[in-house]
Design a protein around this nucleic acid. Structure first.
Lengths: 193, 193
DNA sequence: AGGCGCATGTAAGCCGTTACATGATTCC
DNA sequence: GGAATCATGTAACGGCTTACATGCGCCT
């Protein structure tokens, strides 16, 4: 009763990412930071300096609990678990409406101003982009193969991992294809750099 | 000489969006806010409350200039133009390295936690996502048709608009295809909601 | 008479990045 | 002896969202 159960406990996206991780298994803040790099980092990145305060907020809202365990750091090591309230909040987040996020894509913004630069510069830049996307795509495809090897049942945890990675693969493939399209188009530009 | 020309004038992404707009034509802050909704809003959104302070910063850095014109607002109306320094900064931004942005995609994050919900909830959500992407895609394709009708020369302003919209179209198509894939996959889920 | 478009700004608060800070154990 | 890993935090700063604030002219 000492935690706020009256207010619906507004939770940030990072909060939901952490609740999602803790729904899978208990973890320390450090563990969570590692997992936010990989595999969650494919679609939601966060650093430890965000994670520790967010865990404190989630705990204040009664969505997670911690127990102190023996650890190697200068401060006590805390192992977090999801509470029943935390599970409820996460499920109702999944059930709730998802309003579209603002579009913000630096690569497109840059493309849009590309006429100010010459064809040579544009070719170099798109080539560099292409390489970057290709690298990320390779990682994603390796991840997908690993998950598929577990032969997940439709709708289970691992299957949802796979579905998330599948979206990443398809998005990167689209960007890669656009880079290739751009490179053939740039052939026809007037040279000026 | 009273503006800072010694420091390289670090400009935010929003700043580059505004410089890109002003490189095309002069505009008031209000005009810029309209254009940031459409067509720039397809890939970089910003509200007027961000734009006015940013214009002041760009002016302090000597990248834009304004003249006061007769207007209908309670305050003087300002018409902004790009300076030579502004053009230089924009071009060197295009030439500079672009380090990859952090991945942050709410739709994928949600997919990743979807196993906590039942198949019914998942189907509804993906269906709603599908509809949203389809709507945006329709808008983008209309925009693309309009730009293509202008028969732009490779590498010019309008052609770069087209290239930016092309990337949007391809990305949305990929997301839409993923939604369709998900919907067929969800058929095989165990029913539980 | 009321609403919309033009036109500009400020303020509070949240979210995210970068850097600072500490300290034990394990591996090379 | 030094670097990496485990492990937790704080502080400063910048960007974005939401809301507050003002006021004229035009259209219905």
């Amino acid at each position: 009763m000492d935690v706020a159960e009256s207010t619906p406990a507004r939770v940030s996206s990072l909060g939901h990412a952490l609740l999602g991780l803790l729904a899978r298994r208990e973890a320390t803040g450090y563990d969570l930071a590692q997992q936010m790099r990989h595999p969650v980092g494919y679609f939601w990145e966060a650093s430890h300096s965000q994670i520790y305060p967010e865990l404190a907020r989630l705990e204040a809202a009664g969505l997670v609990d911690h127990t102190v365990v023996a650890g190697k750091g200068p401060r006590p090591t805390k192992r977090y678990v999801l509470t029943a309230a935390g599970t409820r909040v996460q499920v109702s987040w999944l059930a709730g409406v998802m309003r579209p996020e603002p579009n913000r894509d630096l690569q497109t913004l840059r493309t849009w101003s590309l006429w100010l630069a010459g064809a040579g510069l544009a070719r170099d830049w798109v080539g560099e982009r292409r390489q970057h996307h290709a690298e990320v795509l390779r990682d994603l495809e390796a991840e997908r193969a690993e998950l598929a090897a577990e032969q997940p049942a439709p709708g289970d945890r691992v299957w949802c991992n796979l579905a998330a990675v599948e979206l990443g693969v398809r998005s990167r493939q689209a960007e890669l294809a656009w880079c290739d399209w751009m490179l053939t188009e740039i052939e026809g530009w007037p040279v000026s750099g």
